[in-house]
Design a protein around this nucleic acid. Structure first.
Ligand code: MN
Ligand code: MN
Ligand code: MN
Ligand code: MN
Lengths: 224, 224
DNA sequence: AAGCAAATTTAAGTATACTTAAATTATTTG
DNA sequence: CAAATAATTTAAGTATACTTAAATTTGCTT
């Protein structure tokens, strides 16, 4: 019924739709999944036939309830594996995402529940992504904004890195930027929307491309 | 280069050849892998072309050095996963083998090494199967014989259950027969080669089919 | 609103891993 | 040792998931 390929399509459609709110284009999926646009068109029809998505010719895909259910389950498996590989097996950023990308597809309900229990039911993965429970429900999460949209001269706590790429995570750890760090947004350049942040005792410049991948919650103004 | 299907063929060929010493027949493989004999014949040629096995028409398969290397690596991955799932994640006999059968194919060298390290480099899996190291070397193992071939009126220690089937393992635990148990072989019936063993305070009859799957080492005669 | 470029689909073809049915080869047995 | 029987291969066909190239549709731009 659902193969590794199909699962990857469904997860990509779900997550892109969540992030961008609109129909997911063939071009986007082709890029993300490293296949031709023709392959996307093909698979789009198959997934629509099987009720995982709606696929309108020339206007892209949207997820259905059935597709969402599968996607949430995959997200759960992916994220629990990430926590496990990182916290228990001590793999590093370079390995964790890649491995989880494979393991998520071959993990039974019993196995993932055993991992969940072993980890004491974590609510967030190492990037700060929320982990759906068995029922597909996300943990309650306080309002977050990306650093790109947040206001200068305020203190924030980093609660999510919305990018799975290894390279970016390595860069962050080099800068001393890690999940749950406190951060002060000192300034923003009109010119290119880059931001200046104080973190781990240093001031760093971050491009807007990077800032939009860092999500934060506001901290009370510290009166010292 | 090597897919999940191919890996399962190679593992099956290696292990059957180890156990029975002769060419591995198409019929056997078809049964083991749940495919038609025609499929085995097809795949036999492919694997031979790629140098994993020798395949002579009408006389079955034998493993090559290259195939053996892959098979040992798979055995390592399979058995380490079994230990991990059983000892760390507390899955039971019903789940462990099935899960390992899938996970073995998608486990990178780095991940399996991390598991190996986490487990402190175990030498045997939960069935008592030896675990090859990174180099494909088996741990040194004392001489073992199956209960079927061992002598009556002697004490033994169980060191291996040479069967992955869930059903048999459940049966054993019901009888109080577990890995590393002491066992006394009290008698054997000529009629059907069934054996009588004293274990966990009880005397049990075991068919020869079962006895040949239990491997033991002899214990010094206890003089009490 | 016509023309154009970009996005997407259709068409035709490939590789993998199967299937069933027919043909072939090997082995057993009377 | 010749049938009969069992094992295996060959042949033809299927499903999945791709590819490239050609055709089509969409959404600008002027
Ligand atoms: Mn994946
Ligand atoms: Mn993540
Ligand atoms: Mn397997
Ligand atoms: Mn085992």
């Amino acid at each position: 019924m659902s193969t590794i390929s199909k699962e990857d399509y469904i997860k990509a459609i779900y997550t892109d739709q969540q992030r961008n709110g609109k129909n997911v284009s063939a071009t986007y999926l082709a890029g993300k999944l490293n296949v031709s646009k023709a392959a996307v068109s093909d698979m789009g029809k198959k997934l629509a036939n099987q009720g995982f998505i709606k696929y309108e010719a020339y206007r892209g895909a949207t997820i259905t309830k059935k597709g969402e259910k599968l996607a949430l389950n995959l997200l759960r498996r992916h994220r629990l594996w990430e926590v496990f590989l990182m916290d228990v097996l001590k793999l590093d950023w370079g390995e964790v995402h890649e491995e989880a990308e494979k393991l998520e597809h071959l993990t039974s309900e019993k196995l993932i529940d055993a991992i969940d229990k072993y980890l004491h039911y974590p609510k967030f993965d190492p990037h700060g992504h929320p982990i759906p429970n068995k029922l597909g429900e996300f943990p309650h999460t306080p309002a977050v904004v990306s650093l790109k949209e947040s206001q200068i001269k305020k203190k924030y706590r980093i609660v999510r890195f919305d990018d799975e790429s290894f390279e970016l995570m390595k860069y962050f750890s080099r800068l001393g930027i890690s999940l749950y760090s406190e951060i002060y947004l000192s300034d923003r350049l009109e010119f290119d929307d880059s931001v200046f942040v104080e973190v781990a005792g240093r001031t760093q410049a971050l491009s807007s491309k990077i800032a939009e991948r860092i999500f934060v919650t506001e901290l009370e103004a510290k009166d010292d």
